[in-house]
Amino acid sequence: MAPTATYPNPRRILIAAFALAALGLLAFTGVASADLLTPQSGGSPNADDIDTLYKIVLVLAFIIFFAVEGVLLYSIIKYRHRKGAVAAQIHGNTRLEIGWTIGAAVILVILGGVTFAMLPGIRNPPNSQANGYSGPGTEPIKFASAADRQPPNGRALRIAVNGQQYVWRYTYADGDKNRLNNVFAYNTMVVPTGTTVTLEIRAQDVIHSWWIPQLGGKFDAVPGHTNYTWFQIPEDKAGTVFRGQCAELCGRNHANMIAYVKAVTPEQFKLWLAAKKRSIDAANRDVIAQRKVLFPTAADKATQDSAVNPTP
């Protein structure tokens, strides 16, 4: 009995499913969206390099995908059971098997080679542009660890990123030795364009992960460890706000731990930093004044008493 008689068109469902899946794939490629098939990029050279590396892998992946699925589809159509057909009783073919083992290995060697060739561009920060920001916070540091990669000339704007449930805090190395007096901000990180920014990423409670897709890959903020990354936003992106969010489950409101990076010109950044610094200094002075009222020393007390309760 022919199989077609026993179960009408068994291939139809499979072929339909295949066709639908292939159509789906085509429909996706038809959508005019940059991030349908590739990662986000455009905010920093390392993000662009990752994007390029990804695309190289994607091309190879598509070739392998279509080749293998093609042979599979061909075999199941060509070698479906027909009356009188006899299956070839082959147990293997050593040369062929060695061949495709080597073939698979060669593809991976190529991928490894491309990765190693592109790695320095992704990991090593370049110098800032000539007209990038070079004020407080960009002084070269003397003892950088191997993981803490710095530009060749050692000058980068250093920002400490701290993750906590469920907010990001940024502390700028503004030249003040007392880190408690450093300029800081929550949620939105303001950075100058054309300037290499290096990040020291830490966490104070659970693990978080720093990720602004257009500015490069993600790096986990692990309590007790420091992770490092960098970015350099092109000059024509001044005014752009890049969005990202915590990428490691950190509790119930993990979804709401959003981070923004706002790119401004180096001049605007200088003004912003100075204004922040002034307001921190002003706040410090206010605190000192308040402390004198709330927790007065004996001397303060004497002057206060005479001022508030003049002796009758």
Binding site: P10, H81, A87
Partner: peptide, 9 residues
């Protein structure tokens, strides 16, 4: 599958 007589069960 290649050069078999595939029965689609």
């Amino acid at each position: 599958l290649w050069r078999g007589t595939i029965v689609f069960k």
